[in-house]
């Protein structure tokens, strides 16, 4: 038996063909079952670490059948369980479970972005680039965002659900749970949730419509002038205030002159 055949035997999730293949291989069924159980346990543990909200929503563990299906469809290929799960949100969206709990795919996407930010490159603002704001015109300036900033468009109260499970203070968790329950019982509203990493711990916040539109423009590498134009019809957007907050939240990597 070659390595491919052994792998196929361990990954086989069809009970009938497994019995036949295992018998043909001549391997001790106890040994093969150890490898099969290890695979499932490792995958389950990895998903529970990377997707802690999903894990808690699904009663402390990611369901074995769900893990098995995900393993089969999107097998790990990086040699690091922590890098496995990029497709989990899309996978859940196509699973029966999302019909019952429509917010799960977006919760999974939030978990994934937080996980990525947690292990993302350590980046802070290049303060010297701020001088561009005084020396160049807005149409010639781009704002390059920190790699650990991610935006999610959603209609589900994912930020509240996240806080309900992970906020360090119990009272805040209870409050977030109440808010999430209320939001799930009213007409869904489109909004944008942002993930950012001020220091080591990623944070989650819900953006106003104007902030969201401005951030999407920056993500698309539009110039500062174009980005400001896009939010000019909002009454509540102030670039000065946004800038102070963006520096506090470590959203910006640097300012860049477009001609350069």
């Amino acid at each position: 038996m070659n390595q491919q055949q052994l792998l196929a035997l361990i990954w086989n999730d069809d009970p009938t063909s497994f019995i036949k293949e295992r018998e043909e291989s001549g391997f001790d069924v106890r040994g093969i079952n150890i490898y099969r159980r290890n695979l499932l346990a490792n995958a389950q543990r990895a998903l529970s670490i990377t997707f802690p909200t999903i894990s808690q929503l699904l009663d402390s563990d990611v369901n074995e059948i769900l893990v098995q299906e995900f393993l089969k469809k999107y097998p790990p290929n990086k040699g690091d369980w922590a890098q496995w799960g990029d497709e989990f949100s899309r996978f859940i969206a196509t699973n029966q479970i999302a019909h019952e709990y429509a917010y799960l795919p977006d919760c999974a996407e939030l978990d994934w972005h937080i996980h990525k930010a947690l292990n993302g490159q350590d980046q802070t603002l290049d303060y010297t680039s701020l001088a561009l704001l005084a020396s160049a015109e807005p149409e010639d300036i781009s704002i390059v965002l920190n790699n650990n900033v991610a935006l999610i468009r959603t209609t589900s109260p994912i930020s509240e659900i996240f806080d309900a499970h992970h906020h360090p203070e119990e009272k805040q968790r209870e409050q977030a749970m109440e808010q999430a329950k209320i939001a799930l019982n009213i007409e869904p509203k489109k909004h944008v949730v942002m993930i950012f990493r001020p220091e080591f711990q990623p944070k989650v916040t819900t953006l106003t419509d104007s902030e969201a539109e401005f951030m999407f423009c920056l993500k698309a590498r539009k110039s500062l002038a174009e980005s400001l134009d896009a939010v000019s019809h909002y009454d509540d957007f102030s670039f000065d205030k946004w800038l102070v907050k963006a520096i506090e939240q470590n959203l910006i990597l640097h300012f860049k002159e477009n001609s350069l």
């Binding site: 792998l7 361990i10 695979l39 097998p75 990086k78």
Partner: peptide, 13 residues
């Protein structure tokens, strides 16, 4: 490989 795709076993085989 599985169906032509690279896979990692996640275990010491």
């Amino acid at each position: 490989q599985q169906q032509g795709q690279l896979i990692h076993s996640g275990d010491l085989l």
